[in-house]
Computed example of a mutant assay.
Amino acid sequence: MAGDQKAKAKVEQAKGKAKETVGRAVGNERMEAEGRAAQSKGDARQAKEKAKDVFKH
């Protein structure tokens, strides 16, 4: 299960980065901000999974 959550975090980060890049390229500040938010959400999910790993071992 943890691997699944880690994968979701990576996908979320990648989607956020892509959205931010596209937003920046077309000059859409809202899309850029949404991309940064998605990246942050992915970062938080990844941090949570890493913390669970630390306590598991």
Results as ranks from 00 to 15, higher is better:
T21Y: 01
K50E: 13
F55G: 10
G16P: 04
A2K: 13
V26C: 03
R45M: 14
A14K: 10
A14V: 07
A47P: 01
R45T: 08
M1G: 08
K15T: 01
E12W: 02
A44P: 03
A38R: 06
A47G: 02
A44M: 11
F55L: 11
R45P: 00
A25S: 12
T21W: 02
Q5S: 11
A47Y: 03
A44H: 10
A47W: 03
K50N: 13
R45I: 11
V26Q: 02
F55T: 08
V22Q: 03
K41F: 00
Q5D: 12
K48Y: 06
G16A: 05
E29D: 15
M1A: 08
K17E: 13
H57D: 13
A37H: 12
E29Q: 15
H57M: 14
A14T: 10
R36I: 12
G16W: 02
F55Y: 11
K50T: 12
K48M: 05
A18W: 00
A7M: 08
G3H: 10
G3A: 12
K48P: 00
E32C: 05
H57T: 14
E34G: 02
A9Y: 00
A44L: 12
A33Y: 09
A7F: 06
K41A: 04
A14S: 11
G27A: 07
A18H: 00
V11F: 13
E34Q: 09
A2Y: 11
K19L: 12
K17A: 15
G35V: 00
G3W: 06
A33M: 14
A18K: 01
V22T: 04
F55W: 09
G27Q: 06
Q13K: 15
Q46W: 05
A9P: 00
Q39C: 08
E32S: 07
E29T: 15
A47I: 03
A7I: 06
M1W: 01
T21A: 13
V22A: 02
K8F: 05
K56D: 09
K41Q: 06
Q46L: 13
D4M: 11
E12Y: 03
A14L: 10
H57W: 12
K41V: 02
A25T: 10
G35S: 00
